[in-house]
Design a protein around this nucleic acid. Structure first.
Length: 376
RNA sequence: GUGCGAGUAGUUCAGUUGGUUAGAAUAUCAGAUUGUGGUCCUGAGGGUCGUGGGUUCAAAUCCCAUCUCGCACC
């Protein structure tokens, strides 16, 4: 993987760059649609390419390991062959799933024992095993196995958890370096910063992560319930320490406003379930604000879904029709909303990049933030 | 025509020996959703208890009449 930093704003920390992988280029800042089980829910690959202009999508180690299982992925020739997405992919390590499993799992020095949400079967993830799994899945970017702390989290627990995450990181890096991709192309490992909401822990974590000298770095453990201002401060703190010649990935974030604020603080990559999950629950993000398409107010509104939208669905379908589809629980509603939201997110990133390169990102961002939060 | 049964929220139904402001599910309306289960979650509105009388301090509940629907029998 290569990362070329093209431009850094003078009035804030926003950057524009290009990541190059064996499956193609990624222009940053970028939003990565989440496709947990190897599929961006409700979205066809043709739409991902032509409507949404997705450049990279996510898969999840935990889910893909449980189903369909590694044998199938290996026989297919890797995840991209399996799901017919021949562009870059990233796999999350399962650290966050482990966190969200709650009392169905137990964390030890060795790793994490958990029970499958599908059939209750017992499994263990260790840093070594997760690396092996991600090698078999074959994504271009793979994530280290970490422990994501909840919010709120006591200082002592956060400190101990971070120390464990660091030891796990050592083991991840070691195993990663001892192995290679099963399919002939290059993979790269991103370590993950933790440290909860404590500045000193975050600082230590960033320094440790940076010392691994990986090709890119991630910030985890945020957007788990802490106030947004706190999230912004911690993001900035991390970005200021993480090496500037490498991409920075803020995991699991967020709203369109979160993305712009993240970019302004030096983040290059984002992923979030919000555009797809909230889309399936009828929430549409637009450049003028947020719409709940189930609301009765759209019942007789025959204007296009989003007059400023870049996707075909924005113009060929009306608000009244989309509401009808949602109220009727028609599958097409989920598809339209997902395509719209993802195309909006990707277009927002494209515009952000354009403004960074033009040198007026900060001004543009402030205008957009004002509009994006409105309820329509 | 006679007998029996059923009428309670938009819908399907609870409702104790008569006892606070008649409940649930679902639907509707709205909220929530941040390294994904379309699940889950939160809140709100919604009732002439078929109708009219009567008994009682008090009736969805007991009595009478009546209307509607279903079933059975002439």
């Amino acid at each position: 993987m290569k990362f070329e930093l093209l431009y850094v704003s003078d009035d804030c920390k926003a950057r524009a760059g290009v990541i190059e992988t064996d499956h193609g280029k990624i222009e940053t800042p970028i939003f990565m649609p989440v496709g947990t089980i190897g599929s961006v829910k409700a979205v066809h690959r043709n739409e991902l390419e032509s409507q949404i202009n997705a450049q990279i999508i996510l898969g999840n180690t935990y889910h893909l390991y449980l189903r369909p299982g590694l044998d199938v992925i290996r026989q297919a020739g890797g995840i991209q062959k399996f799901n017919s997405w021949n562009k870059p992919m990233l796999t999350d390590s399962g650290g966050f799933q482990v966190y969200s499993l709650g009392d169905r799992r137990k964390i030890t020095e060795e790793g994490c024992v958990f029970r499958s949400h599908i059939d209750g079967s017992k499994h263990i993830f260790t840093p070594e095993k997760v690396m092996d799994i991600e090698r078999t899945l074959g994504a271009d970017i793979i994530m280290a196995f970490d422990e994501c702390t909840p919010y709120p989290c006591e200082y002592n627990y956060a400190k101990k958890s971070l120390e464990l995450t660091n030891r796990w990181l050592d083991r991840c890096v070691k195993r990663f370096n001892e192995t290679e991709c099963e399919y002939g192309y290059k993979q790269t490992l991103f370590p993950i910063v933790q440290g909860s909401v404590y500045g000193d822990l975050r600082k230590k974590s960033c320094e440790y992560v940076a010392s691994m000298d990986c090709e890119g770095n991630a910030i985890g453990g945020l957007s788990v319930g802490e106030p947004v201002e706190m999230m912004y401060e911690l993001t900035e703190l991390c970005c200021d320490i993480l090496p500037k010649e490498k991409p920075r990935y803020l995991m699991g974030v967020g709203t369109p406003i979160n993305l712009l604020e993240g970019i302004a603080r030096g983040v290059d990559m984002f992923d979030c379930v919000m555009p797809t999950r909230n889309g399936r629950n009828a929430m549409l993000f637009t450049s003028e604000g947020i719409m709940n398409m189930k609301n009765e107010k759209w019942k007789n509104d025959f204007s296009p879904i989003d007059i400023n939208g870049t996707a075909e669905v924005d113009h060929v379908y009306t608000k009244a029709y989309l509401r009808h589809l949602f109220v009727s629980q028609e599958i097409l509603a989920l598809q339209i909303a997902s395509i719209h939201n993802l195309s909006f997110y990707l277009e927002l990133m494209r515009q952000a990049r354009e403004h960074i390169l033009m040198g007026d990102f900060l001004r543009w961002k402030n205008i957009m933030v004002e509009k994006l939060g409105r309820r329509l």
